[in-house]
Design a protein around this nucleic acid. Sequence first.
DNA 1: ATGTGATTGACCACTCTGGTCAATATTTAT
DNA 2: ATAAATATTGACCAGAGTGGTCAATCACAT
Lengths: 207, 207
Amino acid sequence: MINSNFLSIDEEKKERILNAAMKEFAQKGFDNASTNEMVKEANISKGLLFHYFGSKKELFMFLFNYSVELFSNEFYGKIDMNERDIFELTKQSKIIKLGLINKYPGIFEFMQSAVTEASAKVKDEMDSMKNELVSAGFNKVFENIDTSKFRDSIDASKVLKVIEWTFEGMLEQELRKARFLNKKVEVEKLYDKADEYIEFFKICFYK
Amino acid sequence: MINSNFLSIDEEKKERILNAAMKEFAQKGFDNASTNEMVKEANISKGLLFHYFGSKKELFMFLFNYSVELFSNEFYGKIDMNERDIFELTKQSKIIKLGLINKYPGIFEFMQSAVTEASAKVKDEMDSMKNELVSAGFNKVFENIDTSKFRDSIDASKVLKVIEWTFEGMLEQELRKARFLNKKVEVEKLYDKADEYIEFFKICFYK
DNA sequence: ATGTGATTGACCACTCTGGTCAATATTTAT
DNA sequence: ATAAATATTGACCAGAGTGGTCAATCACAT
């Protein structure tokens, strides 16, 4: 009887709980994350958290599963697998990322801190989760990119890296700016900015 | 009589203490950082840490001062202020960054977490430190870049951003790789890789 | 031997921990 | 209107960990 009906509760409350827990885990790691802080931030009672999840460890593993599932559903649901244009693909993947961050502000920080989590109390479970993940085999999407439009004199693999780093850097910049102003990044704005750089790149890289 | 003669102790021991403390503060923030963890990691006794720094708060402020001073000394000491070539400048600044990370693995994480530190116990001190820093006026170095070599059809400000994001992404990639293999990034390797991308960029951006 | 400064770690009063569970509030069925 | 069922609370617990202290020990120069 683990987190039985948590998934069917009020959406807003659910997000409050998930976000509070992810934020706390991401900030302090498993051992130092405080369930008291989580319930304070989520505005629920201590008892309710443990009613839903049983223990801190189960909460942590649920969160990790939930995050990974959410991410892969969003990613493979929204991305167009037949798209061979590198710009469209990169743009799509960053927009998906932004959408998730807007809904769950700490989700990527949490996932990253979870895979590098060192606490002995969750090591075994995390190791087997990670094994499952690598054998699932991510990111075949970027494998059959159309490189025929690029100028012959330039190295296509470098083009791909530069595009990836540029859009990641752009997203990070916008996230920092938004965090500073205490707002969310507007997807539209990022879209326009991305398009600007795509035009720029076409001038630089295309024949 | 604050941290009296700490600066003159054995260099290796000094680094052990600084690194342990920066790591702990960066990972958990001021309130949740444990001085017990620090002395365990640095392999010194509890008493010695407090003999040098008096209190957790003084240790934190000392670390921040020390980091900022170190960074600005390295930066303005090593960077060639007359260099107007964007590639040389960016390469230099990333090499300086790598050098510091190799010596103090957690220094940038610590500085970043320190400026965003929310604990009430250090808020006042950090606020005045931050004010001092902005009035010092950083980063005039990248202001008089020579853009005359760029093709006229492309936007110079975008070129600068792409270069910055590319080199930052490259450094991050190498750091992750090194962390995974439990090694340090070799400065030489990064140098070569940076040069490869500089050649690539010259083909793309130059007339 | 003696003096001196560097270094130790057991100890303190106190806060916070994950988790429990009887009590209460709220919703649903009759 | 009542009863039954479910959702939610928060005071409470034993134990762990906290920043900081200080008498005692160590290493070494004279």
